[in-house]
Structures are given as C-alpha cells and as structure tokens.
Design a protein around this nucleic acid. Sequence first.
DNA 1: GGATAACCTGCAACTGCATTGCATATTACC
DNA 2: GGTAATATGCAATGCAGTTGCAGGTTATCC
Lengths: 138, 138
Amino acid sequence: MRPDLDTTLTQKNIRPTAMRLLVLDYLLNQTAAVSLNNLETYFMRSDRITLYRTLKTFEEKGLVHSIDDGSGSVKYALCPDDCSTEEHHDLHVHFFCNQCRETFCLPKSHIPEIALPENFKTEEVNLMVKGICSKCTR
Amino acid sequence: MRPDLDTTLTQKNIRPTAMRLLVLDYLLNQTAAVSLNNLETYFMRSDRITLYRTLKTFEEKGLVHSIDDGSGSVKYALCPDDCSTEEHHDLHVHFFCNQCRETFCLPKSHIPEIALPENFKTEEVNLMVKGICSKCTR
DNA sequence: GGATAACCTGCAACTGCATTGCATATTACC
DNA sequence: GGTAATATGCAATGCAGTTGCAGGTTATCC
Ligand SMILES: [Mn+2]
Ligand SMILES: [Mn+2]
Ligand SMILES: [Zn+2]
Ligand SMILES: [Zn+2]
C-alpha cells in the first residue's frame, strides 16, 4: 500500500541516507506535528544538527511543512502529496491543544477568504486555532 | 480630544512613570506594530530591559496586545479600548508585509468561524496574513 | 573496481531574542 | 518626612536556531 520509504525520498529528490529514512519513518508514525526537540529525544544517539538539517532538507524539497504554533519551537509535519520544492500547498488550519500541547494539521478545515482593506494583497495565510483537541476533550 | 497619556495609564492601573509615558506616546504615533528592537532603537538612552518590562506590563494590564508575526520577534500594538487585564479582545486579522516587513492590525477584517473536526474546541484564533501592504502596493 | 567529485554528518561555536536575579532608585502613601 | 511598594539598570542566563569546517559517505565516471 504505502510506497516504500526509499522511493518516497528519491521522488522528492532527497538522497535516501540511513538517518533520513529513520526520520521519515518516524514522521509517518506520528499523529501530531513534531519539533526538533521531539526528534532529538527520540533519536538520542544522533546529532541534533543533523536532525535539524534533515528537517530543513525535507522542507526545502516539499516533503514536510513547518508550523509556527506560537509555542516557541517550530513544528514539522508531512506535506500532502502535491507539495514540491516550488510550492507548498498548505492551506489548511493548524490546531494547538492547550492541554496536551500537541499541534495538529487539520487538512479538512480550509482557510476561508479573508477580506482585506483596499490595496492589501494576500500572498500567504497562517491560521492557528488553539483550544482542546479531541483526545483531551473526553 | 484624545485623553491625556497620564489618565490612559492610570485607567489601566499602570503607574505613570516617565518611561511609560514616553513609550505610550511613541505607541500612539505608530501606524504599525512595534518590536522591542524598535523601541530600543528609538529610545537609545534607556535600558533594553526596562523597555521590555514596560511592554510586558502594558500587555498584562490590557493596554497593548502582542503579535507573533513569525518574523522572530514579537510585535506590540495598542489594544482597542475594551481590553482589560482579564480579557483581550483581539479577534482581528494581523498582516505582515513581505516587502516593508511591517506588521499591521486590521481591526476591520474579522476572523470567520472555523469549522473544526468533531470534539475539537476553539479557545483562541490567530490569523496572520502575509503579502503586500497598501503602502508598498503602488 | 578504483579515483574523483558531490554530498552528508558531527562537533564546535555563535547569534538573537526572551527572561530572571539582584541591588539601587523612584514613587505612593501614611 | 519616613516607610513600604514598585520601577529601573546592570549582569547573567536559557533556549531555539543557525553557520563553518573537517572528516566520512555516497554517487558517478572511467
Ligand atoms: Mn499542516
Ligand atoms: Mn492587533
Ligand atoms: Zn490535546
Ligand atoms: Zn509594506
């Protein structure tokens, strides 16, 4: 079903090194967006900087997108398939749970058109909703 | 017309010191949101930390609100009159100009209701639009 | 398969912004 | 004016992000 990790990387022009395959595998198994610190904690044996550059490479090549949720550290999550180096299609809402402090992509919640004053031109929209997530609600 | 600086502060339970009056006056004359660095540059003679704590106090007391525009440094802008220590009424859009790199409050652009998946509860919404502002358009 | 070039990784160091502690100065209040 | 509460200035620290460089690994060409 799911294409193998190696091809996922090469399709995005990312050389499939051992580290990158491990990070991709990790990302595929997350339900929430991850921070560099998350990776660092999980991959204790490896270098912080390499993980940092791995995320940066993934982002550049359109494999992940970054989310500034206001928590102080940037989060990363896998992109929908149609993202590329040239253009990120990330017009969905991001949600930060005030209780578990996890950040989620809500790809089904689309960002509405925003009416701006005259002569303001939109190039990018960032919509961050904060509240209580479904896991923490019950 | 505009109430004097001293009263503006005391009405919000902020002791009107010399520094605070100067900062308030400065804020009143801005069209864009200001960063700590902006203040530091403008008030060269005074201490960075004092300016920092001035902004923090203003924020706590509901005189200004902070804006995380993703630029790396937090911006501050005067609140509408009905903000208080207990509650900030800041449900407007913020705009970051990719050209002049200034951040504006757009109080007339209201944030629409966002449809979330089941069991997600909204407590706060942050809407950051990036693009080209009216000054930079022409 | 071996040589070369391109790329990746690990360590160290550095930046910028935010934040705190503490001693001194200023202000409010009796 | 005297005392307590608060504000200020200076120093130091934390933390996330970022860069330089040397050495290791991978791809590629012959
Ligand atoms: Mn997302
Ligand atoms: Mn605002
Ligand atoms: Zn939660
Ligand atoms: Zn502009």
